[in-house]
Amino acid sequence: MNDARVLRLADITEEEVLARIFPLLRRENPVVLVGPGDDTAWMNAPDGRYLATTDAMVRGHDWLDEWSTGADVGHKTVAQNTADIAAMGGVTTGLLVTIAADPSSPVAWFEDLARGLGEAAAAAGAVVVGGDLSGADPGTVMVSVTAFGTTQGRRPVLRNGARPADVVAVAGSLGRSGAGWALLRDGGASAWPDLVRAHLRPAPPLEQGPLAAIAGAHAMIDLSDGLVRDAGRVALSSDVVVDLSLSALRPDIEALAPAVGEEEAQRCVLTGGEEHSLLATFAEEPPPGWRVVGVVRDPAGLDDPTPGVRVDGVPRTGGGWDHFDADR
């Protein structure tokens, strides 16, 4: 049995699986001294410090096979991690991939996954340097990526640095991934393939993270769980109020309204998840590639001194992506 379309993981050895996957992942990079194939990777850390983050995706929870190909899953899980590195002002250098799968799973799906991982890593300027394979219960597929990166000698930009009078700015899109998910859910995907692709294969503005750090961003975060939810994390960490402007967000809402309707468009922009754009606060006008969507306020000067998010002065909480939301 040698046809990848019918081969299952159980039909070949782990070494044979890796022999099929490694060529789809290999890429020369001076940061990587030893890549896949030995007990560990060996990498350069130019200034002796590095960033590290991890995310996992589980079939049936984070993706559905009727919507997503293996390559889509590869692209998305790389986007999740590289956006987190960018949100610290960093550049991703290496990725570790762990896969746990039902042995009856088709080999072709994992070759497709590896192709997506390799393409997304290359687009981010990073390399898949190793990982692990494991069997799992029937029907289970889990893909986890751990990313390493560098701030290139700069201090990382944290969530807790927002200051009153800062402008709040966004790099990248808002609501497009959420709209793509709504279209997939409601059966309208064929008419809006660009929005569906934004959900299946997010494209974070990775270059803007380091540029924001160089420009003096006070705080920054990856918009993975929705604008309101993630802006709230900055607000609570910084003990401030992040006041978003609905008029500044109006172009994003109007761009999505023809596809999902006005009300759903506003929901997607404010609380749609898996966008992986960046939000940051700056003392002055943000650098090119960023647009102002609000302002940071001192809660002590407001009627309600509770740190958090407001939209045109009205408190707003919740929404967005929650991994443990039973009603999702």
Rank of each mutant, 00 (worst) to 15 (best):
V128A: 05
E262P: 09
R154S: 10
I221L: 09
V269Y: 02
F148W: 07
P315R: 04
I253W: 00
L200T: 04
D3Q: 11
H75S: 09
Y50Q: 08
E275Q: 15
V228A: 02
A198C: 14
R8M: 06
M43T: 10
G135W: 08
G94R: 00
V241T: 09
L270Q: 11
P193N: 07
V58Y: 06
E284M: 10
G232K: 02
R27K: 14
N29F: 10
V260W: 01
P305F: 08
P138D: 11
A52R: 13
D243Y: 00
A169T: 04
V32A: 12
L184F: 11
E28W: 14
M1A: 11
N160K: 13
P202I: 00
A283N: 04
R20K: 11
E274T: 04
V128D: 03
A171S: 15
S224Q: 06
A56Y: 02
W321H: 10
A182F: 11
G178K: 03
G187P: 01
G175Q: 03
A213E: 02
D230H: 03
D304P: 11
A215R: 06
I12N: 07
T92F: 04
R310V: 03
S104N: 10
V242Q: 05
A136D: 08
R49L: 14
A87R: 01
L278E: 03
S173Q: 09
R201I: 08
D298W: 07
A122D: 10
V309A: 06
L113H: 02
T93H: 10
T140W: 04
E274F: 04
L113N: 02
I99R: 01
S134L: 13
E285A: 15
V157Q: 01
N160I: 03
D137K: 09
V141Y: 00
R159H: 07
V97N: 01
V314K: 14
D62F: 05
